[in-house]
Design a protein around this nucleic acid. Structure first.
Lengths: 217, 217
DNA sequence: TAAAAAATTTAGATTAATCTAAAAAAATTA
DNA sequence: TAATTTTTTTAGATTAATCTAAATTTTTTA
């Protein structure tokens, strides 16, 4: 049985490892967990002793197989609760993350399996992120950013790579929701903003900053 | 913002205060919280400083108005989650308590109000206990025990005063559920066991031990 | 590559919640 | 009511998770 804190470290290491070739640095973890590097060093020693991470002093960390499995089980719980909050309790997709940060630590396997069934075994959370299975396995999709799509191409919005309430509320206001069709009309030479045709109905200008965080396929 | 531990102490003091004329003793709290009297003394000092309990050394404790309000809000959350677990996730009434012990500490007022709405504003939890409102107020019903009902009387089972899985599973096996009609046929002179007619259909012998923990009206 | 800068770890505290053992107060009983 | 027993509190530690400040290692740069 691991503490809330330990679970949060595993989850953070998992997210910071995505794409990275090297191990996650102490400072990156300190930033993400809002603690000091010294506190992170202490915790890394403990997680290493428990066999959850590969750690050598000054070298950064990676998750062991067991550590990754545990991280994905926490992420599974987080994402299932997000679906519950959005679909059953009518929370906005900008509100679910904060509450799920607490719910993800509730310890009951039966609870999460029954919740999964109640929700109809969803495959994605409200932000389009895939939900790991009960064994701690998650399909890895390769999404493209809207900012990388060439002019004239039509794609479907399938996710976001930024989950802050401010960003998600911005998308709400612009009427950009998961599943909408986006045709890239033109990319501005001046500021890289993207002119898109949404669902064949209306045209919208999307800033490069936003386009970088919209995942499409 | 109060810690899980503080919330649990408030809740425990609330339950131990029911019916009691005097304050709750340190030892009673140590028993209920599975800690030692010394630890309880420490915590009582802290809760008193925060204005949540009335405490004088060696004298036992009572909740202040604010302390009781907080205790009832925790109990509100506990009982609403129990309804969710039983009605939506199909957990047995013997299983919901343990999981709700964790869920009751999730901090989000909006969450609990939306959960309340989702459940249709239930007035009672799966054990027949009333659910406090959002202001921390709870109707106080005066229930009678089945063991106090005189022969010949017909009553309805409305609650239980013992919530252990073993007891609740025993009731399941006997087919005793909330809302069933109970006619007291005869009380044994020998062992005080009660012969009851259930829903006008079948007769069952209920031990005095069980009858003491069945609440009826 | 040597010096400077940045990153990381160690040393030594702190806080909340707990403990054991000992002291003190209250309650019981002879 | 005095002695004994029980209850409660205090004193002094312990553990997990954190901190600051200082020391150490690695990386960068001149």
């Amino acid at each position: 049985m691991y503490s809330f804190t330990e679970e949060n470290y595993l989850k953070t290491i998992f997210y910071l490892s995505i794409g990275a070739k090297e191990g996650v640095s102490t400072n990156a973890l300190a930033d993400s967990t809002n603690t000091r590097a010294a506190s992170v060093s202490d915790m890394l020693k403990r997680l290493a002793e428990k066999g959850l991470i590969n750690y050598q002093k000054y070298r950064g960390v990676t998750l062991t197989e067991e550590g990754e499995r545990l991280a994905l089980l926490v992420i599974r719980k987080h994402r299932l609760w997000e679906v519950f909050l959005a679909e059953k309790l009518q929370f906005g997709w900008d509100e679910v993350h904060v509450i799920a940060e607490e719910l993800e630590h509730i310890r009951s396997e039966r609870l999460i399996e029954k919740l999964d069934a109640f929700l109809g075994y969803p495959k994605f959370d409200p932000h389009g992120d895939p939900i790991p299975n009960a064994a701690g396995e998650m399909p890895r999709f390769i999404y493209r950013k809207l900012s990388e799509i060439v002019e004239g191409t039509t794609v479907v919005m399938t996710g976001v790579s930024e989950h802050s309430p401010a960003f998600l509320q911005h998308l709400d206001k612009a009427g950009l929701t998961l599943g909408c069709q986006l045709k890239v009309n033109e990319i501005s030479d001046f500021d890289k903003s993207v002119s898109v045709l949404i669902d064949n109905v209306r045209t919208l200008f999307v800033s490069h900053e936003v386009a970088k965080n919209l995942l499409v396929k």
